[in-house]
Design a protein around this nucleic acid. Structure first.
Lengths: 343, 343
DNA sequence: GAATTAAATGTAAAAGCTTACATTTTGTTG
DNA sequence: CAACAAAATGTAAGCTTTTACATTTAATTC
C-alpha cells in the first residue's frame, strides 16, 4: 500500500474531527455551516459547539475545489501610488467585504503587458471575478477572459459599446465641459500636460476632448502644446516650465490629473508667475491636494468612492447571477475654483 | 452508484486532459510543471505542447489542497485612504509579485475588532503569511495566530520586545528628536493634534514622546493641549481652531500626521495667522502634501517604500524558511522645513 | 553482454470539502 | 395506528493536484 508520510506541522481540525466530536456525519456538519436551516436545532447546537471547541475553520483549498469558487475578487489597478486609485480600491474592498468577498490586488504600472500577466496570475489564483481599469488592452487579453469565462468589470471609464461592461464616468464628456468653459473664457493659446497616452484610454479621452474643443471652435488642434509625462508632481513642474518658456507661451494649461497640475502651479509660483492672472491651470481627479494648493485648483471631480462601491456591487452581481450590469455613467462634475480665469 | 450531476458551464482542461493528450501519466505532467529537470527532454516538450494547446492552468483549489499552501499573502491595513499606507502597500505588493506571491488586502478601519475579524477571514482564505500594522491588538488575536501557526509580520512600528516581529521605524524616537528640537527653539506652550489613540500604538508613541520631552525639560505634561480627532484635513482644521482660540493659545502644535497638519495650516491661514511666526506646526509622515503646502511642512519622513519592500522580503522569508527576520529599525528622519520656527 | 546504477515514468493514495441520492426518523392524517 | 409525507441524517463519489513508492527504461562498468 502506498503511504503518504508527509507530516503536518500542527493539527488543524477538519470536518471529520468535528463530525466525530458531535457524533454526526460530515455531511451534517457541512450543512450546519452552509445551510443551517436544513438541520434540526438540537443537532445544530451540538455541532456548533464542536466547531468552536475544536476551533474549526474550513480548509480553503478543499472548499474551493468542491464548490468551484473562491469568494475572491481580483483587481488590477495601475498603481496605488495614485491616491485616487487607492481610494477607489478602498471603497471597492469595503463593499466586497460586506458581501463576503475578499480582494486580491495586483498592479499593472500602466502597462498592458504587465496587466495581462497579472490577469493570468489572478485567474490562476482562482478569482471569481475581475476588476480592471479602463478599456485599453490587447484583444488577446479579452479572448483569454472570454475563454476562461471570468466575469470582468471595467471601471474608471464608461463606454457602453466596449467589449467589457464598465461602471464609471465619461472622461471625454467631463473634459469637454471643462474645455468648453475654457474657450468661453477666451483662451486660444492652449497647453496641455497629460499622463502617458499609450495604453491609457482615460488620458487619451481627456486629450481628445481638448483637441475636439479646439477644432469645433475654429482653432487648429495641431497648435495644442502637448507634453506627456509621468504621474509625479516634479514631472508636472518640469513640463510646465517647458511650456511656459516657449516663445509663445500658452495662457491656459490643461493638466491630465491633479498631481501634474499641482506641480505646474508650484512651478509657476517659483517662476514668479501668478495663477490664474498670468496663466490658468486646471487639473483632473479632485484629490485633496486640489483644495490645499493656492490658488485652489479648478478640476474635474471623479466620484472614486461611488465608483468603487458600485463596481463591487455590480461585479458581485455578475459573479452570482451571471447578469450583466445595467450601464449608466456616473457623473464627473467640473469644480470651478480659482486656478482658472478669463484670459 | 452515486452520480454527480453538477454541470460544468464550460470545460477547463485538467491535468488528466494534458496527460491523455501527451500520452503520459498525470504524475509526469505535474513534474513537467513543478520540477521540469526530472523529466526527459523529449517527453517534456511533448507535454508542454499539450499544455499550451489545451491552455491548461492548474486548478488553484486542488493545488492549494495538495501542497497545503497558496502563495498568497494577506495584509490588513487601517485604510488605503491614507496615502502613506497605500504607497507602502504598493511597494509591498511589487516585491511580493517578484517573489511569486499575490496579495490579499483587507482593512481594519483602525479597529482591533475588525482587524481580528479580517485576520480570521484572510486565514480562512488560506494565506501563507500575514502583514499587520502596529503592535496594538488583543491577546486573543495573538493566540489565534500562534495556534494557526501563521507567519505574521508587523510593520509601521518597531519594537523588538513585542510578541510579533516588526519591520519599521521607532515612532517614539522619531517624534522625540523632533520634540527635542522644538524645545530647543524655546516652545513651552505646546499643543498637539493626534489621531485617535485607542488601539493605535503609533499615535500613542508619538504623543508619549512629546509628553516625555515636556517632563524631561521641567514642563508639566498635563499642560499639553491635546486633541484627538480623525484622519481628515477638515478635522485637523477644526482641532487647530479649538486649540488656537484657547485663552492661552500654544505657540507650537505637533500634529500626529501630515493630513492633520495641513488642515491646521489651512485653518491658520483662514484665521489670518502666520505660520510659523504666530504659531509653529509640524506633521508626521512626509507625504507629498507636506512639500506643497505653504509654508512647507516640518515633518518626520516615514520610509514607506523601503518598509513595504523589506516587509515583503522578510515575510516571504518567514514563510519559506520558517525563519524569524533580523530586527533592525528603519530610519525615520525629521525633515526640517518652514513651518517650524523659534518662539 | 551481464550486472549494476541511475534516470524516467507510472500507480494510486491522500488532501478536506460538498452534495446527489439513499436511508432513517419524525410528524401528520384519516 | 397504518399509511404516507416530510424532515433529518447518512453514505460515498467527485473535485484536481502532488508525491511516495514501484516499476520500467536507459546508461555505465567490468
Amino acid at each position: 500500500m502506498v503511504k503518504n508520510t508527509r507530516k503536518k506541522q500542527l493539527h488543524v481540525s477538519t470536518l471529520q474531527d468535528v463530525a466525530r466530536d458531535a457524533k454526526v456525519s460530515t455531511a451534517t456538519v457541512s450543512r450546519c455551516l452552509n445551510s443551517p436551516n436544513q438541520v434540526a436545532e438540537a443537532t445544530r447546537t451540538r455541532v456548533m459547539e464542536a466547531v468552536s471547541k475544536l476551533e474549526y475553520t474550513p480548509n480553503f483549498g478543499a472548499k474551493a475545489m468542491a464548490e468551484n469558487r473562491t469568494f475572491t475578487i481580483g483587481a488590477i489597478i495601475p498603481t496605488m501610488e495614485n491616491a485616487v486609485f487607492a481610494r477607489g480600491l478602498q471603497a471597492f474592498q469595503d463593499t466586497l467585504h460586506k458581501r463576503g468577498y475578499t480582494l486580491l490586488v495586483a498592479s499593472s504600472s500602466y502597462s498592458s503587458d504587465l496587466e495581462q500577466e497579472q490577469m493570468r496570475t489572478l485567474i490562476s489564483r482562482g478569482v471569481d471575478g475581475l476588476l480592471l481599469i479602463g478599456h485599453d488592452r490587447h484583444a488577446s487579453a479579452l479572448q483569454y477572459l472570454e475563454k476562461r469565462n471570468i466575469p470582468t468589470l471595467v471601471t474608471w471609464a464608461y463606454e457602453p459599446a466596449a467589449a467589457l461592461p464598465s461602471i464609471g464616468f465619461d472622461n471625454y464628456a467631463a473634459m469637454q465641459s471643462l474645455a468648453d468653459r475654457v474657450f468661453q473664457l477666451g483662451h486660444k493659446n492652449i497647453g496641455m500636460i497629460s499622463a502617458q497616452i499609450k495604453s491609457n484610454d482615460r488620458a487619451r479621452a481627456r486629450v481628445l476632448a481638448v483637441q475636439d474643443m479646439m477644432t469645433n471652435n475654429g482653432l487648429d488642434k495641431a497648435h495644442l502644446k502637448l507634453i506627456e509625462t509621468e504621474y509625479d508632481i516634479e514631472k508636472g513642474a518640469i513640463a510646465f516650465e517647458t511650456l511656459i518658456k516657449n516663445s509663445d507661451p500658452p495662457t491656459m494649461i490643461f493638466c491630465g490629473n491633479d498631481v501634474l497640475a499641482v506641480g505646474a502651479i508650484r512651478s509657476a509660483h517659483k517662476l514668479g508667475l501668478n495663477v490664474p492672472k498670468d496663466v490658468s491651470i486646471t487639473g483632473f481627479d479632485d484629490i485633496e491636494l486640489a483644495k490645499i494648493v493656492i490658488p485652489e485648483l479648478t478640476t474635474v471631480h471623479v466620484p472614486h468612492q461611488e465608483m468603487g462601491n458600485k463596481a463591487a456591487v455590480a461585479l458581485v452581481d455578475m459573479v452570482e447571477n451571471k447578469s450583466s450590469p445595467l450601464l449608466k455613467p456616473l457623473e464627473a462634475i467640473v469644480k470651478f475654483r480659482n486656478s482658472l480665469a478669463a484670459v
